[in-house]
Simulated assay, not measured.
Amino acid sequence: MKKLLWFFLVLGALITACKPEGAPKEPPKDYYAAITENTDYDSLLAQKLGSDDYGMKAYVMAFLKAGPNRDLDSTAAAKLQEAHLKNIIRMAEAGKLLVAGPFMDDSEIRGIYIFDVRSIEEAQKLTETDPAIKAGSLVMELHPWYGPAVLPLLVPLHKKVEKNSVVD
Rank of each mutant, 00 (worst) to 15 (best):
K163A: 12
S43N: 07
N87G: 06
A23R: 07
E21V: 15
S107P: 01
S137N: 11
G12I: 06
A100V: 08
V166A: 05
K134Q: 11
P102H: 03
P148V: 03
H143Q: 10
E141F: 08
L154D: 07
K134T: 03
G12K: 05
N69H: 11
L154N: 10
M56L: 13
M56Q: 08
A13L: 14
M61L: 12
A135S: 10
L98N: 05
K48V: 07
A13N: 01
E82Q: 12
P144A: 14
T129N: 08
R70W: 07
M1Q: 10
A83S: 08
E93G: 03
K29D: 08
M140L: 04
K3R: 06
A17F: 12
P152V: 03
V99F: 05
K125R: 12
L44H: 04
M140C: 14
V139K: 09
I35Q: 08
L138P: 00
Q47V: 01
A83V: 07
M61D: 00
A83P: 02
A62W: 00
L80S: 10
W6M: 09
K19N: 06
H158W: 09
Y146L: 07
I120S: 04
V99Y: 02
K79I: 00
R90A: 14
I15C: 07
G101I: 12
L85Y: 05
Y31Q: 14
H84I: 06
N38K: 14
L11K: 04
L126F: 07
M61K: 12
L14V: 15
E82D: 07
I109H: 01
S43C: 01
V139L: 09
A149K: 07
Q124T: 15
K125P: 01
E162A: 13
R118H: 10
K134E: 05
G147C: 03
A58N: 12
A58I: 01
L154Q: 11
T16L: 15
V139E: 14
G111D: 00
S165L: 13
V150S: 09
V155M: 02
T127F: 01
G101H: 13
S43Q: 11
K79H: 13
Q81Y: 09
D168T: 05
